[in-house]
C-alpha cells in the first residue's frame, strides 16, 4: 500500500510567503558560511544536513492524500491538493482512462475546494466516484460550483456512492470502513485495509473526553494500524482555548496511537498560521513527549508534508 500526501494544511491554503522563503535562504547561506563550503560538489550533501524547516516546507495546500492499493487508486479528501494530484494523474496515465475512488471526510472548504480544478473530471473516459456518508454530497458539491461562486458547473464525470455512518465495503481487494468523528457538522474516519496492511485517516476530530472509556471506540477503530493519519492542528493549550472547533493535538494523537497499538502516526491538518519552524518544533516536542512517557514504545512519528510518501 502506497501513501502520498498532496495537501496537509487545515482550514485554508497557506502558501509559503516571500518573507519565509527569504528567511530560509538566509539561514541556509549563513550555515553554509559557517560550514566553510568551498566547492559545488559539497552543496547537495550540505543541504541534506540542514534543519528540516530550512531545507523544506510542509506545504500550503489543503487536505488530499493518494493511496495506491491492490491496483486501485483511492483519494482521501479533495482540498486544494486535489488540483495538483489531478495534473499528476493525467501525466502518469499517458492518455489511459483514470479510475479513482474519492473518499470525502466532510464538506468543509479545506476538504472540497480542489474539486472545481480537478482536471481529470473534464475527460469523459475517466471513472471518478465520490464516496461519503453525507446523503446530500452531490447537492453540496453542486452548490460549491453555482455560478455565483464558480463559472463552471460540477463535472458530470463524477459519480456518487452514499455510505452509512459505519459501513464496510470493498473496492476490489481493498476493504474500506467508515467511523464518525467529533467535528462541527461531522467528519468521518476511513480505515483502508488490503492484504495485511491497515491505513487510517482520522482528520478533523476533537477528543474532549480523554478517559480510557471515552477513547475506547476510537482506539478500537484505530487498533493495530500500520499508519494513522491524525489531525494535530493545535497545541495542547490551543486545543483548550478553541474548544468545540473540532481539532486535536500531537500529544493526544500519541496517547491514542499507543492505546491502539498503532505502528506509525503522521500528524496533519496543520494550522495555517504555523510556519515550518513551528511545525518542526511541534514534531520535536511530540518525540520528546513519547521518549519521556513511553521510551520503549516502537511508535514512529511523522509530520505530514506535501510530497511525503510511504509504502506500508
Amino acid at each position: 500500500m502506497y501513501v502520498r500526501f498532496w495537501g496537509v494544511r487545515g482550514s485554508i491554503a497557506a502558501p509559503l510567503t516571500n518573507e519565509a522563503l527569504s528567511a530560509k535562504i538566509e539561514a541556509a547561506v549563513k550555515l553554509a558560511l559557517k560550514a566553510g563550503l568551498t566547492d559545488d560538489w559539497q552543496v547537495s550533501e550540505f543541504i541534506k544536513e540542514l534543519p528540516w524547516h530550512v531545507r523544506q516546507t510542509a506545504g500550503g495546500d489543503t487536505a488530499c492524500i493518494e493511496i495506491q492499493a491492490g491496483g486501485k487508486l483511492l483519494i482521501l479528501d479533495a482540498g486544494t491538493g486535489f488540483r495538483r494530484l489531478g495534473l499528476d494523474l493525467i501525466q502518469r496515465s499517458m492518455g489511459s482512462p483514470i479510475e479513482a475512488h474519492i473518499l470525502i471526510t466532510h464538506t468543509h472548504w479545506d476538504h472540497i475546494s480542489g474539486i472545481p480544478f480537478f482536471a481529470p473530471a473534464f475527460m469523459p473516459d475517466n471513472a471518478l466516484t465520490f464516496y461519503s456518508p453525507y446523503s446530500g454530497l452531490e447537492d453540496r458539491l453542486n452548490h460549491q460550483q453555482n455560478p455565483e461562486y464558480f463559472p463552471v458547473p460540477l463535472a458530470p464525470a463524477f459519480k456518487f456512492v452514499h455510505l452509512n455512518e459505519r459501513e464496510r465495503f470493498q473496492i476490489g481487494d481493498v476493504t474500506v470502513e467508515t467511523f464518525p468523528l467529533n467535528h462541527p457538522g461531522g467528519s468521518y474516519s476511513y480505515r483502508i485495509t488490503q492484504d495485511d496492511k491497515m491505513f487510517i485517516y482520522a482528520t478533523d476530530s476533537e477528543y474532549q473526553g480523554l478517559s480510557a472509556d471515552s477513547l475506547k471506540p476510537f482506539a478500537d477503530f484505530f487498533n493495530g494500524a500500520d499508519l494513522l493519519i491524525f489531525d494535530a492542528q493545535y497545541t495542547m493549550l490551543e486545543n483548550v482555548e478553541k474548544e468545540n472547533w473540532g481539532h486535536s493535538n500531537v500529544f493526544t494523537g500519541i496517547d491514542m496511537a499507543l492505546e491502539a497499538g498503532v505502528k506509525r502516526i503522521a500528524f496533519t491538518h496543520h494550522e495555517p498560521a504555523y510556519d515550518d519552524e513551528k511545525l518542526g518544533e511541534i514534531l520535536h516536542k511530540a518525540k520528546e513527549y513519547l521518549n519521556i512517557n513511553q521510551p520503549e514504545a516502537g511508535l514512529q512519528l511523522y509530520l505530514a508534508s506535501e510530497g511525503f510518501s510511504m509504502t506500508l
Binding site: 474532549q208 480523554l210 478517559s211 495542547m236 493549550l237 483548550v240 493535538n249 493526544t252 500519541i254 496517547d255
Partner: peptide, 10 residues
C-alpha cells in the same frame, strides 16, 4: 499523559 494535562488545563 495528555488526558491528565487536559483535565488540569480545563
Amino acid at each position: 499523559d495528555s488526558a491528565g494535562l487536559r483535565v488540569v488545563l480545563v
